[in-house]
């Protein structure tokens, strides 16, 4: 009788405890769920760059991809752009592609910006926000490192230094 009571009490407390633990866990990970998760397949997309060339993410299978979301009005984006360009030149023949996705500004603003900074990597514009929605983009700049199998291996928001960009690119180099 006494033993049974202890068992029942223990079971009830465990169930209640598990419910509380799950709620706390879910509450603290709810922001992560909103992001593209590291370790998962990167959502595929097709966008056209400033030269009219189509870039499809899945076409870069076998290569690493440095995927950067940015805006011309975003200061940290502007600062990291020249670093990205330098590293793009270093890595493009070593199997790491750079794709810069603008968050839907006018073509004029984007191309003037690219000219001003002499950017050579492909810049695509996500006009209707589909790609940003797929990648759940919030703050800029946002950088995803995608490996040769199309998996997200790293996610970073905020400005990158040239050193960091180099390290990131080395990580996904096939």
């Amino acid at each position: 009788m006494k033993k049974r009571r202890l068992v029942i009490r223990t079971i009830i407390l465990l169930i209640l405890g598990a419910a509380v633990a799950y709620t706390l866990y879910a509450n603290f990970t709810k922001d992560d769920i909103k992001k593209v998760v590291v370790g998962e397949q990167a959502p595929d997309f097709v966008l056209v760059d400033l030269n009219g060339e189509e870039h499809r993410l899945s076409d870069y299978k076998g290569q690493g991809v440095f995927l950067n979301f940015w805006g011309t009005y975003c200061k940290p984006c502007e600062k990291e752009m020249p670093y990205m360009d330098n590293q793009y030149k270093q890595f493009k023949d070593k199997g790491v592609q750079t794709l810069a996705v603008n968050v839907g500004e006018s073509e004029l603003s984007v191309s003037k910006f690219a000219d001003r900074h002499n950017l050579t990597f492909p810049i695509v514009i996500d006009k209707d926000g589909q790609v940003q929605t797929a990648y759940k983009i919030g703050a800029l700049p946002a950088t995803f490192m995608i490996d040769k199998d199309g998996k997200v291996v790293k996610y970073h928001t905020g400005q990158l230094t040239e050193e960091m960009i180099k390290e990131l690119m080395e990580q996904v180099q096939p």
Partner: peptide, 22 residues
């Protein structure tokens, strides 16, 4: 010709015209 376009224009700290948003 449109040489530069600033949708949400302001002057930044160094007096350059910049845009605050898109």
């Amino acid at each position: 010709e449109v040489v530069s376009y600033f949708p949400d224009f302001e002057f930044d700290d160094s007096g350059e015209p910049v845009t605050k948003s898109k």
